[in-house]
Amino acid sequence: MGDIILEARGLTKEFKGFVAVNDVNLAVERGTIHALIGPNGAGKTTCFNLLTHFITPTSGRIFFNGRDITGSRPAAIARQGLVRSFQISAVFPHLTVLENVRIALQRKRGRSLDFWRSERVLTSLDTRARELIDAVGLARFVDSTAGELPYGRKRALEIATTLALDPEMLLLDEPTAGMTHEDVDRIAALIRKVAADRTVLMVEHNLSVVSTLSDHITVLARGEVLAQGNYETVSTNPAVVEAYLGAAHG
């Protein structure tokens, strides 16, 4: 094993007696694309919520770059370079596409408590925002209101916004869900491109995306780690096949 950027030890989350995540150990190697897969309700989103402290674990510890971040505030975790996206597309619906991306750039710029300054100072961020918007294929929509974009384009916008922070590591929760074929290809290519100098942990149901992109896979079922390894190892693992078939058959 190489250099570990993100590590979870014995991560457990109990919701009123229901164990959604059970003693999960996860180690993500720097510079890789790591996929977290599993049937519906396996606990993948809950894992993301725990890793970014959107919910507090019942037990277990989380380390980012060797630092214990278990008790850090979610915004502080983001500022350390571990940035997440959401399963349900998360944009600022009444802001334009440009403004959405600018909000992220503004955070890196700082001085966001300046209530006496005109927002015109933010136009210096427009060039960079347009580049990012262009990269996800939204150039035509720069001045559209984000809420009016079709679903797939909202996801693309969310990725552009996340990338605007230039995070060291991205957690993407089903980045291609609800997208058309051609959008899926574009986003997959984009993820590969941005992962060149970053680490990505992603939840993804599209197995062709998983197989082409990921270096390492962790399979989760009923809150527990079922298998780990590369695509070949995992996809031929009988327990994994069973879990997927079992889930498919209800």
Partner: peptide
């Protein structure tokens, strides 16, 4: 106001 969790995930202490 529009999406607090998203703003937090971008690093803003809401």
């Amino acid at each position: 106001r529009e999406n607090e969790p998203r703003a937090i995930s971008l690093g803003y202490d809401a």
